[in-house]
Amino acid sequence: MVLLPQIFIACLFLGMYSTGSLLGCKWIVKDQDDINHQFHVYNNRALGFLDMMITNTTKDAEIEHTVAFPNQLYHQKSKATDEDKLAFIVQILEEVAALFEEDHSSASWEENTVENFLNIVNKQAEELRSCVSSLSFKVQRRTEMYFKRLSNEILKKNGYSAEAWETIRNITEDHLRQCGFLVNSLGNAH
């Protein structure tokens, strides 16, 4: 009989922690002026670095590819719980970072710019991961396979060319924007 109140208190605490954990996440709570999420500040910086990484290629040299942008996956996640949305965003950011770790020497990007971009993306992933309980974080196989296809069918197939990297840069920009939309869709209380 003594255990029942203790179990109730433990369940109550766990319930309060899991529902309130996103509220305390500094990366999704707006600042005191209610202007920006930390996520958006960093996401805008990452997008700025991507803009600096434009590769000089001609329109005729664009890479033809069959890797469709996963709009359906983003649509599904837009209807998920806040924690599932954050877990998905973390995986997208981690996959983007892994993609940009590949050989980008033909893209003629300044290494410092690429490093700054990667630092920001990794920082976003790390901070948002701390907002997601380890129980709800599961690697989405479809997302993982999508990024493997990007690597194989765009980068490797085209010899990591400047044109291939420009295609990846454009796709990455779309992903960062979609992640921003998902963060905006988090509970109205944020």
Rank of each mutant, 00 (worst) to 15 (best):
S133E: 07
V29T: 14
L186V: 11
F88E: 09
L50C: 06
N119H: 09
V114C: 07
Y146A: 00
L12R: 10
N71V: 13
F137P: 05
N71S: 15
V41L: 14
E153Y: 07
K59M: 03
D60A: 12
E127P: 00
F117P: 06
C131P: 05
G20L: 14
S134K: 10
V132Q: 01
S106H: 08
S134L: 10
S105Y: 00
L155E: 03
M16H: 07
A107D: 02
N112V: 13
N122D: 13
A125C: 04
Y42K: 12
A10S: 13
K157T: 06
V29W: 03
E83K: 11
E166A: 01
I7V: 14
D174I: 11
V121R: 09
S18L: 12
Q140A: 00
Y74F: 15
N184R: 12
N71Q: 15
F147K: 02
F137S: 07
D84V: 08
P70C: 06
L128W: 01
L99N: 01
A46C: 05
F100D: 00
D174M: 13
S106K: 08
I28M: 07
S21N: 11
L47K: 13
E83S: 14
L128P: 07
N188M: 10
I28S: 04
N116G: 01
S134I: 13
T57D: 00
M53G: 09
A97N: 08
T57L: 02
N158I: 02
A107I: 08
A87P: 03
Q6V: 14
E173V: 08
L135D: 12
T19I: 09
A97T: 09
A107M: 05
N56T: 14
N43L: 07
R129N: 13
E127T: 08
F147P: 03
I54R: 13
Y42F: 13
H75D: 12
F147W: 08
F117D: 05
D31A: 01
I9C: 05
T172G: 04
K148I: 14
C131Y: 01
V67E: 04
G15S: 08
